[in-house]
Nucleic acid binder design. Sequence first.
DNA 1: TTGTAGGCGTTATCAA
DNA 2: TTGATAACGCCTACAA
Lengths: 339, 339
Amino acid sequence: MNEFARPTLDDVARAAGVSTATVSRCLNTPDRVIAATRERVMKAVDALGYTPDFGGRALASRRTNTVGAIIPTMDNAIFARGLQAFQETLSKCGKTLLVASSGYDPQREREQMEVMASRGVDGLLLIGSARPESSREFLRRRGIPFVAAWNLGGAEGCFVGFDNRAAAASLTERVIARGHRRLAMISGISHMNDRAADRIAGVLAAAAAAGIARSELPVIESGYGFDDAAKAFAELMAQTPRPTAVLCGNDVLAVGAMQKARELGLRVPEDVSITGFDDIDLASVVTPKLTTVEVPHQRMGEAAAGMLIKLINKQPVEPQIEFPTTVVERGTLGPPPGN
Amino acid sequence: MNEFARPTLDDVARAAGVSTATVSRCLNTPDRVIAATRERVMKAVDALGYTPDFGGRALASRRTNTVGAIIPTMDNAIFARGLQAFQETLSKCGKTLLVASSGYDPQREREQMEVMASRGVDGLLLIGSARPESSREFLRRRGIPFVAAWNLGGAEGCFVGFDNRAAAASLTERVIARGHRRLAMISGISHMNDRAADRIAGVLAAAAAAGIARSELPVIESGYGFDDAAKAFAELMAQTPRPTAVLCGNDVLAVGAMQKARELGLRVPEDVSITGFDDIDLASVVTPKLTTVEVPHQRMGEAAAGMLIKLINKQPVEPQIEFPTTVVERGTLGPPPGN
DNA sequence: TTGTAGGCGTTATCAA
DNA sequence: TTGATAACGCCTACAA
C-alpha cells in the first residue's frame, strides 16, 4: 500500500486478517460481529487511520447521510439562527448539512433544488411552501423527503412553523385596542413568500374585523434592507391623513422605519407607533425597544431537523408541528397622538 | 428501465445511441465531442431527466466539488454574513457548501474536521489559525487545501483577513487621543481564538505606547452574549478609579455594555465611552450609534472562496489577502467626563 | 471523434 | 459469525 494513499477497507481487512465484509460490518452493524474480531478490526482501523470513503459508501448504500437546506439568505438573523440549530441537531445524528441560498428567488431556489438532488441529499429543508408548481412537481418526482418551515401548510407535505396570519392578526388587535384606527403596513415582498403574504392577510383581517376599510390601510411591499423600509416609511408619512401606527412585516423593516422616523423628527411612539415581527436581537436594542412578535426560531430549527430525520428513516410523523408565538409589548407602541 | 428508478449514464447512452463514455464526455468536457452527437445526447439527457449520481462520480473522479466550512457559529452576524458571501461565490463555480459549527470549541472543531474529511471535501474554510497542533497535523496529513479567514497568519497556510491587532490599536489610539487614560476592555475568550487575542494585544500595545501601565488597564474576558458583557461591564464600573472608556472586543459585547450602562444610570458617552468592533447592523441601530471598526465581512467571504478554489485547482495564489479596516466614529466615544 | 473495458471503495446477498 | 463476490454509477486510459 502506497504510504500516502488513504487506506481502504481492503487495507484494514488485510491488516486485521479478515474479509472486507467483516470490516464493513464492524463499522456499520458492530453487533453482528463477535467481540474478539471486532476488537482486532478496530485496532487495525485506527492504526491505519482509516476513514470510510464517502463516494464508495454513497454509491453502494444509496444514502449520503447528507441533508440540504435552501434558505432565502443567511444574512437574515432569523434564518441564521434557525439554520444553526438545524445544523447542530443534524450533527448530533451523524448527518451533515449542505446549504444553499435562493435570495428569495423561486427560480434560484429551483436550481438549488436540482443541485441538492444531484448531490443525493437524503432530505431537504425548505422555507415556506409558496413555490411554482413545477418546483413542487420536481420534489414529488424525485421523491425527496422534505419539510417546509417557518409557516404552516395546507394539505400536502410536512410543516414546522407557526401561524403567521394569526400572529399578525393578534398583534394588530393589540394596536387597535390602543385606539389606533389609521393603520399602515410595510411588508416584505409577498410574491412567492407565504410568510409575508400571511402576515399581510392577518393585519388586514384584524383591521376589517374592527371595521377599518381596506382602502384606508395602505400596504407597501418593500425590499429587505433598512433603507428600503425607511423609504417606504417616508412615503407613508407623506400621506394625509397620516397613519398613526405602522405595522412592519419584520423587525428589520421596523428598525428601518424607526430610523427614518427619527430623521423626520417624529417621536416613537408619541407621534407614531411602530411594530415589528420576529423578535430578533435588534428588537430589544433599539430605543425605544420594539413591540414585536416573538417566534422560537431555534426550536423550530431543531424540530425541523428532528422531523426530517424521521421522514428519512420512514418513521411516522405528525404532518405539522406548530409553535406558539407571543406578542411582546415594549416601547414602540403607544396610544395614537392626541388621545 | 424501471420507471421510478433514476436514469443512469447507461440509460442515456442507450437512448442517444452512443456509448457511456461519450455521454460522460458531453457532461464533463463538451468540447471533446462533436456538436451533432452532443446535441443528440443532451436531448436524451433532459428527456430522461438525467442527473449524474454523486456517489458514482465522487468514487470515479476522486473529487466531490464540495467544500466545507467550519465556523464558530452562525448566530453571530459576522460569520453569517461572510458565510453567505462564501456560499454564493462557491455556488457560481458549481461547488456546494457543507457547513459545520464548532461553538468556539477546538475539540468540536477537530471532530468536524474529521467529518468534513470523511465527506471528501475538496477544500476547507476555517476561522482563524489558533488551534491545537494535533488539528494542524491532521490537516497536513490529509493534504486538504484550506484557507484560514478573519485573521492574518504567520508562516504556513493561506489567509484572507485583516490585521486585528493593528485595527484594535488604531481604535485605541483614537480613544486615547480624546483624552482618556483610564481604559478597560471587555474581550471575547482569547483561548484558541486569535482574533480575540490579537485585539487585546492591539489595545494593550497602543496603551503602552501612550504610557499607560498594563496594571491600570483591566481586561475581562467574557462570553459572547449581551448578558455576559453586561455583567463584565458592571464589574468594571465597580472599580475605583472607574474606567472612562471601555473598549469591547466586538459589537455584541459593546451593545451589552451599553445596555448595562443605561441600567446603571450612566450616560454614554458623557459618563463613560464605549467602543465596539466589526460594525454589524446592531452598531448603527443603538442610541447613540456605536463607534466601532468596520470590517468588510462579505468581501472577505468572497475572497476566501476565490482563494480556496484556486488552491483546489492548484493554481498559484498569493499566500495572504489582507483587507483594510476603518475606524468609524459615531456617538459612543466622547471625551472623558470632567474634561 | 468515439467506443471498450477496467477500476474507484463500499455495501449487500448468499453460502459456508 | 464470517467470507466470496456481485453490484452500485461513473470516469478515463487506451484502442479503434
